[in-house]
Design a protein around this nucleic acid. Structure first.
Lengths: 143, 143
DNA sequence: TGATAAAAAGACGTTGACCTCTTTTATGAG
DNA sequence: CTCATAAAAGAGGTCAACGTCTTTTTATCA
């Protein structure tokens, strides 16, 4: 129920790029790392991955950096989760019993299923853009 | 949403001891490890911890082993979770932002809170004994 | 009392998430 | 074209969860 650091870093950095891009065309890793207090080189890998997945754009060289694209704000959180943590955590048995399934469930199965489905639904219906609409945008800085 | 291996091992081994104790006074690590396909020495550490926490009893020496006590079946799952995974996962910000709280929440906070509380409630109200009442007790074997 | 059996204890090994550092590649300015 | 800059790439390090192995302690019984 606490997501990986990679997920948090990915989400916060995307939100940072979206917010900054309103007045500034490109954002560099150094700036994101400094302002969000994320390890620079580790963040580099995450943002590189986000760029490869077309969630943000990147340009190398002087005056380069990262920027949003047409799809950025409509990315659902579950897509980020898929890229960082994977979706297995929502599918596999919470006790890691391989033979557990809806037909032959472990006794935890039904006790967990609805809760899990609600979480999946929230992650599927919430987009990056939805979070930007939040009252207090400063949260991404609040390490 | 997938719990630690230690939690699953702990829960399944307790259930095994409870079930076996109906016809047999003591259960040895070797038997539990063999039947539940859990690494023996790792399981030893977990059961030792459960014994220290008075969740089960243990006796050394020939014909020794583990057995239930008066409290075993009424242990709530959240107590096991506390011992194996800790309860921090239910309390800290899902994005690991230290300054996030109900007053100054990150935008994930409210989206997660209810779901989390439901999980806590289930873990608090469900006991080891409740799981034994399950239709198919064989699940603990179904690795 | 000595042999034996089983848990307790603790040293050690493995792996993946997380993080750091250095080198390579691409790009815009002069 | 050359230089400076910033992302991309990749080698390597750290730590905690997970797992293995050996030794010690405790209990039983012949």
């Amino acid at each position: 129920m606490v997501f990986s650091k990679s997920f948090g870093y990915a989400l916060r950095s995307i939100l940072y790029v979206v917010m900054i891009n309103e007045n500034q065309s490109r954002v560099q890793i150094q700036e994101v790392a400094d302002n969000l207090q994320i390890p620079k080189h580790f963040l580099g890998k995450i943002m590189k991955m986000l760029a490869k997945e077309k969630i943000i754009d990147s340009v190398k060289g002087p005056f380069g950096g990262f920027s949003v694209n047409d799809g950025t704000t409509s990315i659902p959180l579950i897509r980020l989760m898929e890229l960082t943590d994977g979706l297995e955590q929502f599918q596999e048995c919470s006790l890691r019993l391989r033979k557990c399934n809806a037909d032959k469930p472990c006794p935890m199965h039904h006790r967990i299923a609805q809760n899990r489905n609600e979480l999946i639904a929230m992650f599927s219906s919430t987009t990056v853009g939805d979070l930007i609409k939040s009252d207090d945008k400063d949260f991404i800085y609040s390490i």
